[in-house]
């Protein structure tokens, strides 16, 4: 039954990808990308990879769809007709695809228990992490403790994304008050948003601090909280959203999250361990692991929230400006 569901989902995934290639309307393409992400999330869920599915659903289908839609508000929704011939790219793609398929022939059989991926470090994580880290959610212990340095790298990547966007676009505060911003006439949306937004933020906090015990963590929580503020900015307009959380404050927040993460590493070095060695944070090593993971997940959440919201501000203020002109 699970294989049948997998096959159906994969077929829908392939159909969505083909439709994306041949569509010229970029608005529809963005929507199909959201469907594509949801289908991948369902496949991950079917593979019991709940954390990855959660990330894919919240980042891939949620926030990136919104960011691409704001980009379309600046650039326009029609794809430009390309003039040059597509024979050479087709040739390159065919050769690369053939080489990749040839490469998969050497891969170990799918799902076999003797595969290297199941023999290398995974048994140690599965057997030792309940004693060493003591978290019910093993994904969080691998992500935040065993692979803490990689996760620091990911957080820095997210942080550098906002540096790139801000140095290219910048967030413009609007001077004129007279033009309509947001969806002023949508009374129903106003009421529903006021009901929904606090609940979304509450859910984000739950995901943030429940990540040790269930699926979730800093990345998903940051994205969900950013989605709540983006909803507020979309419905009430950017100026009112700036009054709640300003872009300058968000820049400080984005940097503070990365600094919080890295300073946990430095503090553990100061206490006599290695970089990001949480065992040094408390007298009991397992308690130290708990403290370390909670603090660095908070750093990740703060950075991801600030970065996503700031990128939305940058795109959104550009879009409003280009609509005025």
């Amino acid at each position: 039954m699970a294989e049948f569901i997998d096959l159906v989902l994969l077929a829908m995934l392939a159909l969505t990808a083909l439709r994306i290639i041949f569509l010229k309307d970029l608005f529809a393409v963005v929507m199909l990308f959201g469907i594509y992400s949801f289908l991948s999330a369902l496949i991950f869920l079917n593979l019991d990879a709940v954390d990855v599915a959660f990330t894919e659903a919240s980042v891939g289908a949620g926030i990136s769809t919104v960011l691409m839609l704001v980009t379309l508000a600046i650039t326009g929704r029609k794809e430009k007709q390309s003039t040059h011939s597509s024979l050479l790219p087709l040739f390159v793609v065919l050769v690369t695809g053939a080489a990749l398929i040839y490469g998969t022939l050497d891969m170990p059989p799918f799902g076999h228990p003797d595969n290297p991926v199941h023999q290398h470090v995974a048994p140690r994580y599965i057997e030792e992490s309940p004693k060493e880290v003591g978290l019910p959610n093993m994904v969080t212990s691998v992500l935040a403790s065993y692979r803490g340095f990689d996760t620091l790298g990911e957080t820095v990547v997210v942080f550098s994304a906002v540096i790139g966007v801000l140095s290219l676009l910048g967030v413009r505060r609007k001077k004129k008050k007279d033009l309509e911003s947001g969806l002023e006439s949508h009374r129903v949306l106003h009421v529903v948003a006021k009901i929904i937004i606090p609940l979304v933020i509450l859910f984000a906090l739950y995901v943030q601090f429940h990540g040790d015990f269930g699926p979730g963590g800093g990345f998903q929580a940051g994205v969900i909280a950013a989605a709540a503020f983006i909803l507020y900015a979309l419905i009430l307009g950017l100026p009112k959203a700036f009054a709640v959380v300003g872009p300058r404050f968000l820049q400080w927040m984005a940097a503070a999250g990365v600094l919080l993460y890295a300073s946990v590493g430095l503090y553990s070095m100061y206490m006599g361990g290695h970089f990001l060695d949480y065992n040094q944070l408390a007298t009991d090593p397992v308690a130290g692991q708990h403290y370390g993971i909670i603090i660095i997940e908070l750093g990740v959440g703060v950075t991801v929230f600030a970065v996503m919201l700031n990128i939305f501000y940058a795109f959104g203020s550009q879009a409003e400006r280009s609509n005025v002109q």
């Binding site: 129903v188 949306l189 529903v192 009901i195 929904i196 609940l199």
Partner: peptide, 8 residues
């Protein structure tokens, strides 16, 4: 959540 959001 669905009863509030989808009609909206």
């Amino acid at each position: 959540f669905l009863m509030v959001t989808s009609p909206t």
